[in-house]
Each structure stands twice: as structure tokens, then as C-alpha cells.
């Protein structure tokens, strides 16, 4: 963690959260000391494979699950209403009520007057492109439309903090695009947003900060731009003027350095390795040497692979 570039006041901070669930005769450690911070005007994306502890973290932050250890500090007022949440795996809405009625109901329970709730509700349904469906029972909407209604319901009382646990599950591409643009606008309006998703492109487009959870531990966290650029073991791509032949002895020497060779392209991880690889390649003509801009997806896979290597065979 480097506190230098962070805005001073997080809206929400979680310190060393631990949670374990009974499993058979032993325990399942769902979270092993997870710390997180949410800042206004920023989207924090929580990534991780199934069972990593994302939903558990979100629910602890929302106060729906009690941690065994650790604490959550919230710098916003409003008991129960400082946050809006789209929770994973639950309906979030009354199927018997219409979309608008759901928004009016939850808006009022979260502190609006019914009139305000109706006005906000209509606006939000328009924003998610469901104005035509406002009066249709939620149970009869499609999966993606329900998900969009749930998103509107989470926002109806205009909370400063949003928890979105896989909000784009089952949502078609066009609507995903709309949600993406909308989340960016909400962020600009100063909301602190925690997003979990398995869609890495969505994460890439939205995340100001990223936290990767693996088996209940934070495997990597930081500002997206910094973790992508300043990751200590950057990937370099060397393009040769001539391909390296199959039988070439330099090929085996490079492979010993864990360098990937593919025709004219050589991929090297880390700066020292790059110099060594270049010495091996020495008299060959070079077309270009560049640092690969790493995508969030690439980073995610690398973190996953590095973690899996020492303790292989751990299945989820």
C-alpha cells in the first residue's frame, strides 16, 4: 500500500476481516484477513475465482454477515440506508409487484417519501431503459430486465455507497454497455462503488482500483493503472528480424530462463531476464523491444497462475 496518491478519506474501510464457516468436522476459511477501502468517486473491483470470498466480503461490509474478526468503519450516516446493494443469487425484488412499485416500496423503506420514491423510480427506470416495463410485474420480466430493475432499486434512495455483486449477470451486451456507462456516471457523481464481476472486460473498463481475492486472501490490490503499469515483473515483447529456428541452441537457453519463444516474437518477464535474453540473442537483428501493456485479464491470469504454482492441485 502506498498512501501517497490516495484521496485522504475513504467512505468505508474494512480491517483484517476474517470469517470461517463450519464445514464437515472442520472449518472453511472464507476470509483470512481481508482489508479493503472504498473512496468516493471511485470504483473498486473485486475479482477472484468462484469461492474466493467476494460475496462474503460484500455481505460483511453491508452488515448482513457478522465477521469473526476485524471491523468495518463507515464514514456515512444513515443506519441501513447509506448503501444500496444488488446482492448475488437473491431476487432483490418482489416478483408480484411491478418494477415501479418495487422502487416506490424500497425507496420509501429507505427514507424517501412515497412521492419522491415514485419520481426517482420513474427516472431510474428510464435510465436503465425499462420505462416501457415500469408497470409490468417483475416476475414476468426477463432475467436481464430483472437485474436492471434490481440495480435501479439499489439506487432509488441515492445512497453514497453501492455494492454490486455481479450486477451484469444474465444481462445482454447492449444493456451491459448501458450499465457500464451508467456506473461511470455514478462514479463521476461521487459515489463509492464496490463491484464484483467475472467479466474482466467490464472490470477493466470500470475499475479505478482492483483487489484480487484468492481463497480468502488479498492476492493483489491497488490502483488499476499502477498495478498494470508498475507491476514489478513487467512483460517485455521482443520482435526479432529473423525467426529463431527450431533446433537453435539459443532456444533451449532462453527456455531455461522461462522465456516464451514463438517464431519472431519473444516474451520475457522481468527486466533482468530481459537483459540476459538480449545477451543470448546478441548478434540477431531486432525489430523492436517493448513493454507489453498488460490487461486486467492478463494480470488476473498471471496472479492466478503464480498462486496456483506452489500449492498445485487446489480445486475450487
Amino acid at each position: 500500500m502506498n498512501p501517497s496518491t490516495q484521496p485522504p478519506n475513504p467512505l468505508l474501510q474494512a480491517h483484517r476481516l476474517r470469517k470461517r464457516y463450519p464445514k464437515g468436522k472442520g472449518w472453511l476459511e472464507a476470509l483470512k484477513g481481508v482489508s479493503l477501502a472504498l473512496y468516493p468517486g471511485e470504483i473498486l473491483t473485486l475479482l477472484g475465482p468462484n469461492g474466493a470470498g467476494k460475496t462474503t466480503s460484500v455481505k460483511i461490509l453491508a452488515g448482513l454477515v457478522e465477521p469473526d474478526e476485524g471491523r468495518v468503519e463507515v464514514q456515512v450516516d444513515g443506519p441501513g440506508t447509506w448503501l444500496g446493494a444488488v446482492l448475488e443469487g437473491s431476487r432483490n425484488l418482489y416478483w408480484r409487484l411491478s418494477a415501479l412499485e418495487n422502487l416506490i416500496y424500497f425507496g420509501t423503506l429507505r427514507g424517501l417519501s412515497p412521492k419522491e420514491a415514485r419520481r426517482r423510480g420513474s427516472e431510474l427506470l428510464q435510465a436503465v431503459g425499462l420505462q416501457d416495463k415500469a408497470h409490468q410485474a417483475v416476475g414476468s420480466l426477463s432475467r436481464g430486465q430483472q437485474q436492471r430493475t434490481a440495480l435501479a432499486a439499489a439506487l432509488v434512495h441515492d445512497p453514497p455507497v453501492l455494492f454490486l455483486d455481479e450486477p451484469t449477470l444474465g444481462v445482454d451486451l447492449e444493456a451491459q454497455e448501458a450499465i457500464r456507462a451508467w456506473l461511470l456516471r455514478l462514479k463521476e457523481a461521487g459515489k463509492a462503488i464496490l463491484l464484483t464481476t467475472h467479466q474482466l472486460e467490464l472490470a477493466e473498463a470500470l475499475a479505478d482500483r482492483v483487489t484480487i481475492l484468492l481463497e480468502g486472501e488479498v492476492a493483489l490490490e491497488g490502483r488499476t493503472r499502477e498495478v498494470l503499469a508498475g507491476s514489478p515483473r513487467a512483460v517485455y515483447r521482443v520482435e526479432l528480424g529473423l525467426p529463431l529456428e527450431e533446433g537453435d541452441s539459443r532456444r533451449t537457453r532462453l527456455q531455461a530462463l522461462e522465456v516464451e519463444v514463438e517464431g519472431k516474437v519473444v516474451r520475457v518477464v522481468g527486466e533482468e531476464t530481459l537483459w540476459e535474453a538480449l545477451r543470448i540473442l546478441d548478434p540477431l537483428p531486432l525489430e523492436r523491444v517493448e513493454r507489453e501493456s498488460l490487461s486486467l485479464a492478463g494480470l488476473f491470469w498471471r496472479v492466478l497462475r503464480e498462486r496456483r504454482k506452489p500449492c498445485s492441485g487446489s480445486s475450487t
Binding site: G80, N92, Y94, F106, L109, A153
Partner: peptide, 18 residues
């Protein structure tokens, strides 16, 4: 069954209030 207890808990009156 409807999966709404959590959303009802996240309200001003809380679950007991509702």
C-alpha cells in the same frame, strides 16, 4: 423463499421494524 430478507434488512426500520 423469495430471497428478500437481506434487502428488507437493509432498510431504515430494519428487519424487526418491517
Amino acid at each position: 423463499l423469495a430471497g428478500l430478507l437481506e434487502q428488507l434488512a437493509l432498510t431504515r426500520p430494519g428487519l424487526l421494524g418491517v
